[in-house]
Design a binder for these strands. Structure first.
Lengths: 64, 64
DNA sequence: TCCCGATGTCAAGCGTGCTTTACATGGATC
DNA sequence: GATCCATGTAAAGCACGCTTGACATCGGGA
């Protein structure tokens, strides 16, 4: 499961810490998701899509 | 996080076991998701949306 | 050069997601 | 009543998601 979070965050000029605050997780969690350590839970994925004003499928790419 | 899996599955005439097979999880996992025991992981959510030919937001409803 | 903000990473700890095995219940059919 | 299928549930075990706290590195600006 890939994601476009680093790119989408950069477009908006947000730091990892800022994004973390917007979706109510720790900075380390955002970093781990961006660097592919693990996939977020479904609720966190929804919150991420929401702060980017995108659909989940536009943020996360299922590579089967 | 609510979901419409029981309803969508019934529309298609699938049993929990059939759906489980289609998304490659155990029957107990489908049952637990339907009965609200826990939310699926993001990859399983993608597979569920895919077998229903719907977007994730049409299968899962984030109740903030 | 010195500092500082941003990012990467590690460790310990805890709750969740998912598995297998197993058993209980209810409805339909015989 | 006996059988069968679908569903619900439980326990044990393992891996993952997320936390806090801490430390390392890197680039930019004073």
């Amino acid at each position: 499961m890939k994601n476009r979070i680093t790119e989408l965050r950069a477009e908006r000029g947000w730091t990892q810490a800022e994004l973390a605050q917007r979706v109510s997780v720790s900075r380390q969690t955002i970093n781990a998701i961006e660097t592919g350590k693990f996939d977020p839970s479904l609720p966190v994925a929804f919150r991420l899509a929401r702060v980017f004003a995108l659909r989940i499928e536009e943020v996360f790419v299922d590579d089967q």
